[in-house]
Design a protein around this nucleic acid. Structure first.
Lengths: 254, 254
DNA sequence: CGAACGATTGAATTTTGTCAACGTGGGTGG
DNA sequence: CCACCCACGTTGACAAAATTCAATCGTTCG
């Protein structure tokens, strides 16, 4: 019932940060991860081998998401939680950087998940042989930082409608292979509570906001987060997404 | 009246992310930046040579803060602004990563500022000769991500008191060479409006919150952001700073 | 069937933003 | 030197936004 052969996630990966590798680099990658995978069930909290001194340039073990959705989050002492980022197939988890033991970041599987585990030694070797892989991973890392900045902007200022609209747009763009288009259904494997933890809102307010968007004919939410965008223009306007940036995201990159 | 000779900022740098370089690496660095500096006055908006394809591993031009305070911020179309990070001496600006033209991040000098400009070629060569520099910069980059995560946590959930207390603690730790201790005065070169843009609050509410903290005997604010912590325990409690993490930050690292 | 979880909704409360007014201090130009 | 201005901080009153508490409903799972 699980995936049959090689590196799903990097080949089936979609637009935004597709690690667009050349075929030789790609096959080298596939050869390397063969037999080095981790499977985790939905809901599991994932512990990575943190091993103190991994400095993204090599040495530390690196993890890649092959399938499934993951979140990384932090919690305050009084029980509140903030989801820092959502990770999809093609993204990497660098313990000590995005995740890991430092500063109590917790990584959790939203769905059943497959990870590729690459030892520091192998990773360094691969980087030397295929510099484009390093570049691709770097680009992905920057995209993650960019996402965090955008989310911060809407967390700080910006209404509940704004950040929810933005988050839905972002997750649609990243998780589907059609872009952000009206009328097409996509699914987000999160509860309203989790969406609230991501957007800095209470679950109740997420619910209210979604229903208001629905009442205003902007989107339709059915059956646990199946979402259809009805009025794309208004949605991006609420999300305060810069049309130019959006176009850049949508048009398949070179 | 400006600094007389070599790389201030890296030598005078303090604890948290001090780019603790060995003396040979340090002198190589100083030799390289000699004659490659940019000076900017307080308030200036700084444009970096973005040049599309700088992938933190080399090639792109890299900038280092030698002296002064900088902020990087994003703005929504309707005029609201969010400060994403504050950069102090010792930090690096990698256009395209933390800053740069992509996605309309704006970099501004809070005080008079000196930057070191290192061309991609030179930077690559330096990295090859002194791998520890690369490691140090990487570590600094991770510290920046960590800061952003912490700030996100308090932006999303967390009261105004919490994020302000946290921000003050962070800036004190990063900008002074004594740690976070009671009774010692330090200065933050920001207006309440800017502090609000950093904390996701209105200037008015920043003012109210500061005065409440002062009324409760937790700190003293005088004369445009000269700050003295009076009750450190309560302050860190409000900031929801994990005591263990804090200790790690305070104790000079190996 | 019962239990548990998630979604939905209303009502009361708290937090924060907005608007407006005022004071103050540091500059600038006369 | 003085008058003036302007940016910043401070405060109050009010409005808007979001949280909390609580009750209800539908589904799913054992």
């Amino acid at each position: 019932m699980h995936q049959t052969s090689d590196c799903a996630g990097l080949s089936e990966r979609h637009r935004p940060v597709g690690l667009g590798l050349g075929s030789d680099a790609h096959s080298a990658f596939c050869a390397l991860i063969d037999g080095h995978r981790m499977e985790r069930r939905a809901g599991t909290i994932i512990t990575l081998e943190g091993e103190g001194e991994g400095d993204g340039n090599g040495d530390g073990t690196v993890y890649f998401v092959l399938s499934g959705w993951l979140i990384s989050s932090k919690s305050t002492l009084d029980g509140h939680r903030q989801i820092v980022d959502v990770m999809l197939p093609g993204d990497s988890l660098d313990p000590g950087s995005a995740g890991g033991d430092m500063s109590a970041i917790e990584i959790q599987a939203l769905t059943d998940t497959t990870l590729a585990v690459i030892e520091g030694r192998d990773w360094t070797r691969l980087l030397n042989q295929h510099p484009d892989i390093g570049r691709a991973v770097n680009r992905a890392g920057k995209a993650a930082t960019w996402r965090m900045c955008e989310r911060m902007l809407r967390l700080g200022k910006g209404s509940a409608e704004s950040i929810i609209a933005f988050t839905l747009c972002e997750l649609c763009l990243r998780s589907t292979d059609h872009g952000l288009i009206a009328g097409r259904k996509f699914h987000i494997p999160m509860t309203q509570q989790q969406l609230g933890d991501l957007c800095g809102l209470s679950a109740v307010h997420v619910c209210r906001t979604l229903r208001r968007l629905e009442r205003n004919g902007i989107l339709t939410v059915t059956d646990h987060m199946d979402i259809v965008v009805d009025d794309l223009d208004t949605l991006t306007e609420i999300a305060e997404i810069d049309p130019d940036t959006l176009r850049q995201e949508i048009i398949p990159a070179a």
